[in-house]
Simulated scan of single mutants.
Amino acid sequence: MTAQPPEPSARPAPSGELRASHDDREAVVEQLRDAAAEGRIDLDELDARLEQALTSKTQAELAVLTADLPRLDSTGSQLPLVLKGGMYGASRGPGRWEVPGHVIAHGGMGGVKIDFTRVECRLKEVAVEAYGETSGVTIVIPDGWTAETSGMDPGVGGLADRTTPDRLPGAPLIRLTGSGGAGGVVIRHPSRRELRKLRSNPTPG
Rank of each mutant, 00 (worst) to 15 (best):
D34K: 10
E129P: 01
P154N: 09
N201I: 12
G107Q: 04
A105Y: 00
A10N: 11
L195N: 09
G95D: 15
G157E: 08
P190N: 07
G39P: 10
I139H: 04
S21E: 09
T138R: 13
E38N: 14
G16F: 08
E133F: 03
E133D: 14
D44Q: 13
G184Q: 08
P172R: 00
T2M: 12
R167L: 05
L69V: 01
A67N: 05
R11T: 14
G180V: 05
L43N: 12
L54E: 15
E7D: 12
T2R: 13
S21R: 02
T58H: 05
L43K: 08
A182T: 13
D24E: 10
V99P: 03
I141K: 07
T55R: 10
R71C: 03
R199D: 14
G16V: 06
R196A: 12
A20S: 10
R96M: 09
L83T: 02
K57H: 11
R193W: 12
P70S: 03
Q31P: 09
E38D: 15
T2S: 13
C121Q: 00
R196P: 06
L79G: 00
G136Q: 08
L83E: 04
R33I: 10
I141Y: 04
V156N: 09
E148C: 06
A27M: 13
A36F: 09
G110I: 04
I141A: 04
A67Q: 13
A171Y: 05
D23P: 00
M1L: 11
G155F: 04
V82G: 02
Q78C: 05
A90P: 05
D153I: 11
A10R: 14
V119D: 03
E148D: 15
E30G: 10
L123F: 01
A90F: 04
T138L: 11
E51L: 12
S15Q: 15
L32E: 06
R188S: 09
S74G: 08
V112K: 00
H102P: 00
Q52A: 15
T138G: 07
P6Y: 07
